[in-house]
Amino acid sequence: MCLGVPGRVVAVNGQIAQVDFFGVRRETRLDVIDEPVQAGDYVLNHVGFAIRRIPDHEIEETLALYEVLLREAENDMMAADVRSEIDAAQLHSGGSGG
């Protein structure tokens, strides 16, 4: 419904932030964000406006949420197989941000 793009704040100048989106920079307006942001923060953006600061610990919690869902299904052998696959993948890649 609304294309929301996460990015990392590079610099803040009043109501305007320079935001890095996957390696590309674009200005984002800070008029409607509900907490102060600074360089290094993640923000969610929609039509050129930041609508949410994404706290680092919430990124970890998102990953934790998947783990909980998977654990609930853990008694199943297949899930266990896939879980070991995930663990192995994480060892290789260092995880995806968690």
Partner: peptide, 27 residues
């Protein structure tokens, strides 16, 4: 190699996706 930035906010790990899809199927 992909640049940094918000890439860690791309939750696209295929192994986790498969596991979640399996969990949906079981439920």
């Amino acid at each position: 190699e992909r640049p940094t930035g918000a890439d860690e906010l791309k939750f696209r790990d295929p192994a986790r996706a498969r596991a979640l899809a399996d969990a949906i199927g079981r439920m």
